[in-house]
Computed example of a mutant assay.
Amino acid sequence: MDSTKAEVGYSHGGFSLDSTGAGAVSRGFDVFRHGWQTQVGDGFPLPTFSRATTGDFRVRSRVAKVRDVAITDLDSASVIRTAGTPYGYADQARMYVVRRGVWSLGGGPDRAEHTVPAGQFLLRHGPPLHFGAAPHTTVQILTLPSAVFDVRLRNRSFTASAGSAEMRLLLAHTNMVHATVTDLGPAGVHAAHGAMIELAKAVVAGRFDDAEAALRPPLVEAAKVLADSHLADPELSAAMLAGELNVSVRTLQRAFTVAGESVTSYIRHRRLEEARRALATRSRLPSVAELAAYWQFSDSSHFVRAFKKRYGQTPVEYARSVRAAGP
């Protein structure tokens, strides 16, 4: 189970669980509850679950928290059913995105029952509802501050297709958050949180206009987080990032251009930055050829020219100046 990094102003953490294997079922729910309480926290209280669920908790799950947003992925091999919902955190909204099976909710003030089949999502604004699912159901639950959405949605629920471009982009981003949440620093937490908020708003708005200014910043930030985790990958490119984020290359490039740079220049500058850090911090000075190869420059000459243009010194000159300065 991953450890949480929680600091004032950018609380975040995550954990994963697979209780579908032999020997894991009897303690599966206790492990899940402990992970939730220690990694996610009191801002997102767990509901009370039925005895049938706690006694036979066969799920694959991953949970991430980024400030006031929580992402819960559940892939269940057993029945999941609540026996009561907690109080005191009604000022939240939940988005249930069903990928397989059927997710059911009910027990709200209006007593309405909601059934969400695969390929649909339900947004609930207000107090949580009882929920349940048959075995072999896969769902993502995104918990957000209610202020994200229009006041006209208050204490209401609505269902829509989960196949929109907005939803594909949101799901791509939440997958990245799951993969990186425990390693994010303050800037990464801020970017990941902002992107989720803006993309969730775009899903509800029911439109994705790649010329809309409000969506460009979160798209750029999501691309940067993804690029930063693949800087040494020879396949890293605008096309790869666009594919992972489920947008066109043109859309991604336009968003970066508005932000004042290109995708290619961002990747090159970040690679140079990491190369410079290696020259300044490693006890063994890496060779120019090693750095050029590792950070995906075509050859040593190209790397040296790019480094000098960026920092005003060749890599060797920079390394010597750092060592001459000393601690």
Rank of each mutant, 00 (worst) to 15 (best):
S300P: 14
K65G: 05
R33G: 05
Y318W: 11
V98K: 07
T281H: 07
I71E: 01
A255H: 01
L215M: 14
S157H: 02
E290M: 04
R60E: 12
G41N: 10
A293W: 02
T251K: 05
D68R: 10
V31G: 08
H269C: 10
G108S: 07
A77E: 15
V225Y: 00
D75H: 12
V98W: 11
L144Y: 01
G108F: 12
R310K: 14
T143H: 10
L46K: 06
E113D: 15
W103V: 08
G163E: 13
A6H: 09
V59G: 02
I141G: 00
F307I: 02
G163D: 14
A192C: 01
F49R: 13
P47R: 12
A162S: 15
D150V: 09
V189I: 06
H12L: 03
P45I: 03
S19W: 11
F44P: 13
F44T: 04
T174Q: 06
H230M: 13
Q92W: 04
V98R: 12
A232F: 02
E113M: 11
Q92D: 05
Y266G: 03
F158G: 02
A172G: 14
L184T: 00
Q140T: 15
S157L: 04
V98C: 13
D233E: 06
S146G: 14
R100D: 15
V189C: 02
V63F: 02
F49E: 07
S262N: 03
A133G: 11
G84E: 06
H230V: 04
Q296A: 10
G194N: 08
G23C: 06
A306R: 07
Q120S: 11
T143K: 10
S248E: 05
T174F: 02
H190W: 08
R168G: 15
K5W: 06
R111G: 12
